[in-house]
Amino acid sequence: MAIRIVIDILIAIGAIFALAGTIGILKMPDTYCRMQASTCVATLGTLCTSIGGVLYAAIIMHSASAAVKIAVIALMIILTNPLGAHAIAKGAYRNGIRPEKEMTVDDYGRDMKDE
């Protein structure tokens, strides 16, 4: 019973962070800040939920293969998410997308003009 409570709490925490990330994606002022908020969904949102899923599959369902597969899903998200985020941010910047409000510092734009 105690383990069931731990699992529920983990999944609830994951859902709260996913909600925060979704609000951020909808309401942040520019493209790059939206991407920052979306990392929130991809990291703690999915990680907490999948840890809860692994515990549920291993302890309550007694199914080792399901637990291992959920762990592999979490691992793949951790490995691939930064690559995608980096490529989207760089592509958006190179394509000329700039925030409406001027950024505080913009070293990348400064160095790109020199090229």
């Binding site: 920052q36 990291t43 951790i78 930064p82 985020a85 980096h86 941010a89 760089k90 910047y93 990348y108």
Partner: peptide, 10 residues
């Protein structure tokens, strides 16, 4: 990049 709040661009 995985840490929310910072993204490596180049």
């Amino acid at each position: 990049t995985l840490t929310p709040g910072t993204i490596t661009m180049e």
